[in-house]
Amino acid sequence: MIQTIAFYMFAVVLITSGALTILSRNPVHSVLWLILAFFNAAGLMLLLGAEFIAMLLVIVYVGAVAVLFLFVVMMLDIDFAELRAGFVRYLPVGVLLAVVLAAQLVFALGAWYVGGVQLAGRLAPVDPSVSNIQAVGELLYTRYAFLFEAAGIILLVAMIGAIVLTNRPRTGVRRQDVSAQNGRRPEDATRLAKPGVGEGVEL
């Protein structure tokens, strides 16, 4: 019962926040909706008994979104004074959202303790005595080793692409030369001066 309620709650909030991510005009709001969507997706994963993936979603994606948020803030011309102006006015809505999130947390944990949702037509049922991380680890480097390595090549191609498309030889760049730095002696850099009284230092 609690699982069903929790599922529909997470699903509805996930779809709504997903839609609002692309519909809201303010990019900062979009990012916030995206974070909410990730939290709810993590909740759904928890219902499936995949607590490891749920944690990954929160740690990796929400963390990545925080960085994305930073980029949005840096690259767009947003007047934060204007955004903050309505703080008191929007406070009730904010508190409501916080309450909803807290309630979701309670539901998710409750549903998780009761046990995962039963999926129809499972060919390969999960062994309940094995923890998530162990199950993933046992498969990742054995059964799916080739795919894992191929995924590594994809990331390598992404890196090559980013460098090829953006890196260009620049002129007039001052590069660090470690040996020149180490080979520099004190007498090259400093000079003892003995100015006369009332004359000051000549540089």
Binding site: L147, A150, A151, V157, G161, V164, L165
Partner: peptide, 21 residues
């Protein structure tokens, strides 16, 4: 299906870079 996706993505990602080479 996972092999399908990984192969497709490797090919596509290289193609995106090549298109804007």
């Amino acid at each position: 299906l996972m092999t399908l996706y990984i192969g497709l993505e490797l090919q596509s990602l290289s193609a995106y870079v090549l298109a804007s080479f």
